[in-house]
Computed example of a mutant assay.
Amino acid sequence: MSRIRSALVIGGGIAGPVAATALLKAGIDARVYEAYPGTSYGIGSGLALAPNGVAALDIIGAGDPVRAIAQPVSKMILSVGGNQHHLPAVPGEPPLQLVDRAELHQTLHDHAVAAGVHVEFDKRLIGVDEHSDGVTARFADGSTATADVLIGADGIRSTVRGLIDPNAPGPKFTGMLGFGASTFCDAEVPADTMVFAFGKRAYYLYWSAGDGQVFWGANLPSKQYLTLTEARAIPAEHWLTILRDTYAEDTPGGVLARSTTPEQLEVTGGLHIMPPVPHWYRGRMVLVGDAVHAPSNSSGQGASLAVESAVQLARCLRDLPEPEAAFAAYERLRRERVEGIAARAAKINSSKTPGPVARKMMNLLMPLMVKTVMNPEKTVGAERRYRIDWDARVQSA
């Protein structure tokens, strides 16, 4: 039986509210402290939740609220230089759920609060004091909070990660800047389908929301790294000029870029991938979500892995008596899976800007590739079939 009765969760994005809700389900009082003044606070655009991630949300009762704001997509097409190749679906698996990140943050927040989670905003963590029987968080406004354990769900620029290990690696730039938009245009986009397009000069993806509305995301190659703040300091008109030039010769990339207005463009800045983090925990502090594993957007699993890890961490804290034993079991359950998916995504990143010869070869080999190395059953089938057995007791490592 666990002797852990309370937890401080630093970060109110995706992993934070899920972890807190799962902890309450496990009988552990959890409070969330978010640095920003509100949920999401204008960060991010669209993302996809895989079946494994939605299944983990079902454990805490958040699956249906998320499905209510999502658009299911069950078909996928790979477009190479305008030539389209239909990818087989993973047999027996539910569709991907496409959601707006801000809406997802709000939905998870609302669900956590309804479950009884206490959430405070404008709480930027500046330090932690550990004691023999607890941990105290210090915030920039001078306030403090104390509990048995502290969970760092504070994202890719995690403060908690640096407190656990000052030498911990930070996120790595993938060499691409991210953009997203929802626009109206007459481009032909099949319903219930996500298209992954290798354009002449850059990669992009798109899907239809019906009635002429199309969501699209661009991965713009860039030698210069820009943070979210730096990228958004540049006028949207400037970015649209670059995007329209980059995708001018692509179909429907050119139409999508020309149809997008400055008001519709969502700028997300440099796209990241987290290298393996040596130390997931120390003492009474532990990391979860993007703070410890953030595969690039190419994985299609970033948010889903964050949800899974939050639920698994709650199981471990529920079943094991001491923080160190619980954290060790949690890392044992998660590290191999998340690092394997990150490695797969890294390989995809390296192929997002094929030249003309490579594009021609891809089209020639695609019929064979979709049956072998690109077959979803072989590449992501096991990833999407992963399910957490909440009722099973976690054993000590």
Rank of each mutant, 00 (worst) to 15 (best):
Y247R: 02
G269D: 11
T251M: 09
T251Q: 11
G270V: 01
L271I: 01
L265S: 02
T251N: 13
S259V: 02
T251F: 04
L271C: 02
E249G: 05
G254E: 10
A248I: 00
T246M: 07
V267M: 09
G253F: 02
T268A: 15
T268V: 14
G254V: 08
L243P: 03
T246A: 01
G270I: 03
L265T: 01
T261D: 08
V255W: 08
D245E: 14
I242Q: 09
Y247L: 11
T260K: 09
A257P: 05
A257W: 01
R244L: 03
G254M: 06
T268Y: 14
E266Q: 15
A257F: 04
G269N: 11
P262K: 08
A257C: 12
Y247G: 03
E249F: 03
S259C: 10
L271E: 03
T241G: 13
E249D: 14
L265K: 01
S259H: 07
T260Q: 08
P252W: 05
S259W: 01
D245L: 06
T246V: 06
G270H: 04
T241I: 08
T261K: 09
G253C: 09
R244Q: 10
Q264L: 12
A248S: 11
R244E: 01
L243Q: 02
I242H: 04
A257D: 04
T246E: 06
P252I: 05
L271F: 02
T251G: 04
L256T: 11
R244C: 00
T261Q: 09
Q264M: 11
Q264W: 10
A257K: 05
G253D: 07
G270R: 09
T251L: 10
V267C: 08
T246F: 00
V267E: 06
E266V: 15
T251S: 14
D245C: 08
D250Y: 00
R244H: 00
V267N: 05
V255E: 15
L271M: 11
E266F: 14
R258S: 15
G269C: 12
T246K: 02
S259D: 04
T260R: 07
T268E: 15
R244V: 01
S259I: 03
I242P: 00
L271N: 03
L265R: 00
R258V: 14
G254F: 07
